[in-house]
Amino acid sequence: MSLQTLKAEPRIIFFDVIETVFSLAPLGDKLTELNLPAGTDRLFFAQLLRDAFALSASGVFQPFPDIAKGTLAVLLHSLGREADETTLKEILGIFSQLPAHQDVKPALERAKNSECQAVLLTNGSRANTEKLVRDNGIEHLVDDIVSVEDFSIWKPQPELYRLAALKYSCAPANALLVAAHAWDVHGAIQAGFHGIWIQRHESFYHPLMGSPDGQVTSLVDAVDLGVQLLQ
């Protein structure tokens, strides 16, 4: 995929990837299949982010797959389960099989019909995100993908969002992030972006995070509002 020719003053809607665009439901299904306690999927993902943020805050960058593997091994041991390579590979492989939420395709079609570009901005790897996009048949609707691996900086550090916008010569004021995580929206707002929070797993926006320009329950509504904000 390559970004379409941009106007002198590009408008870009950045989309978070995991949970915002692609559902984590298969992760829960896999952990249930392995007879792990209910809620282990949410605990695993929360601890994965915790470990990533801790490394990032201390000035250390590690890619998503490596952090996920380490966090999962620690969690499995704490649950009294073996963290052998076969089990780790079986669980972590789910991240390459995530389905897009039902509102993703119509939302990206709306973006395609606007003057805004649609760019995925992920803490995950570029290779895995490209696979998810292809497997879900939305590659013709995604203009580009930016991974934190490109800059060795994890979201939600504000510098990451600014660098992502700079890649396309886009002023932060002409950029917007749509995300299902308040911490992600907060980081984008701190970087000068507009921000829209979409309700996915969480049903309440964290009161200490930067106030989003909108709170929605549909990605289509997020794009419609985003296009208005970037006019």
Rank of each mutant, 00 (worst) to 15 (best):
99 P>E: 14
172 P>R: 08
189 I>P: 01
9 E>N: 15
126 R>T: 09
73 A>F: 06
118 A>M: 02
16 D>V: 07
33 E>L: 09
45 F>I: 12
119 V>L: 04
226 G>P: 03
80 G>K: 00
161 Y>C: 05
158 P>L: 10
228 Q>M: 04
39 G>A: 10
43 L>S: 05
147 S>D: 06
155 K>S: 08
63 P>L: 09
26 P>A: 09
9 E>P: 09
189 I>T: 12
29 D>T: 11
116 C>T: 06
117 Q>D: 06
229 L>S: 02
91 I>W: 11
200 R>S: 00
98 L>P: 03
107 A>F: 10
43 L>P: 03
171 A>H: 01
179 A>M: 13
113 N>H: 01
63 P>R: 06
26 P>S: 06
105 K>P: 01
65 P>S: 12
147 S>N: 14
64 F>E: 11
202 E>H: 14
69 K>N: 12
190 Q>M: 09
225 L>D: 02
10 P>F: 00
228 Q>P: 03
106 P>S: 06
191 A>P: 03
175 A>W: 02
65 P>E: 11
87 T>W: 04
67 I>F: 01
196 I>K: 05
47 Q>C: 11
217 T>L: 08
129 T>H: 04
231 Q>D: 05
226 G>S: 00
111 A>E: 00
178 V>P: 05
47 Q>F: 13
207 P>G: 12
220 V>A: 13
99 P>Q: 14
204 F>Q: 15
93 G>A: 06
3 L>E: 15
125 S>H: 14
203 S>C: 11
229 L>Q: 03
119 V>Q: 05
47 Q>N: 15
74 V>Y: 08
221 D>V: 07
144 D>M: 00
218 S>H: 04
66 D>L: 15
9 E>G: 03
95 F>G: 11
